[in-house]
Computed example of a mutant assay.
Amino acid sequence: MVSPPARYLVFFQYFGTKYSGVMETSNDQSIVGVQNYLEKAAQNLKPVVPIKFHISSRTDSGVHALSNSAHLDIQRAPGKPAFNEKELVYSLNYHLKPEPIRILNAHRVTSSFHARFSALSRTYVYRLLIGCAHYSEIPVFERDLCWAPVGGCLNVPAMRDAAQFLLGTHDFSTFRSLNSETPFQSPVRTILQVDIRPSSGFLSHHYEHRGLEFWELKFRSRSFLYRQCHPCCRTGVTAA
């Protein structure tokens, strides 16, 4: 007798430079999604039914995730017990090598849990680097981890004043991109948090003499519209 599938919530992170985004793509593309690698790794667990990752938060090409989440169902062969959480994390990470994708932790959840629809909030982080006259001046340890607009400085007080207009519930029609689902989605969303604050760079204390400034813009909401947060400088996403 085949045992019922066990459902797990997993949190995972990835360095997204080499991927088309988090969502699954056709395997015959030259650049595929993070989900492709997650599901390829999961098939090594020898499930009775192919494993599908249901991801809570979408990211686009080149965007990284500090902590994204997904749920998956694993049905094992008769007589095989369900994986415990540590076994699952270890096994998936083993089969993800050498991809820059890591499972952070896993939790057994009920069959009614859904990673996308049960998510309480999503947070997008943008990192800005000020002080570079040309993109070639970006420290090598910060490549693909920040956006460096050329010239000038940030008017932080004005940015913080403007951010207050985004807080709360609004119609964000003019902030979104169009896709096949756009006509069926409400453009109304509630922004719960907007923070603009100084940030540290990796090993930045070793090049303080260059006068570089790192800033972090954080946006948190229950959900966002398709590309409401433009990916040009988005470097991390946390879904919880």
Rank of each mutant, 00 (worst) to 15 (best):
V2Y: 08
P4R: 00
P5M: 04
P5W: 03
F11N: 07
F11Y: 13
Y14W: 15
G16R: 03
S20K: 08
G21D: 01
V22L: 12
S26E: 14
S26V: 12
S26T: 13
D28R: 10
D28Q: 11
D28Y: 15
E39V: 04
E39W: 09
K40E: 14
N44E: 14
K46H: 15
P50D: 13
H54Q: 00
D60Y: 09
H64K: 04
H71Q: 01
K80D: 05
A82W: 03
E85P: 02
E87L: 06
E87H: 06
S91L: 14
L92H: 04
N93V: 06
L96Y: 00
E99M: 09
R102F: 07
I103L: 11
N105I: 05
N105Y: 08
A106T: 01
H107K: 09
R108F: 05
R116S: 06
S118D: 11
T123M: 00
L128S: 05
L129N: 01
I138A: 00
E142L: 03
W147G: 00
P149Y: 05
G152Q: 09
L154M: 11
M159A: 13
D161V: 07
D161F: 09
Q164H: 11
G168W: 10
S173L: 14
S173M: 12
T174Y: 10
F184T: 12
V188C: 12
R189N: 07
V194F: 04
S200P: 08
L203C: 15
S204G: 12
S204I: 06
Y207H: 14
R210H: 11
G211E: 03
G211A: 07
W215N: 01
W215L: 05
E216G: 04
S221Q: 10
R222A: 11
S223I: 02
R227G: 04
R227V: 01
P231K: 09
R234G: 04
G236Y: 01
T238C: 15
A240K: 13
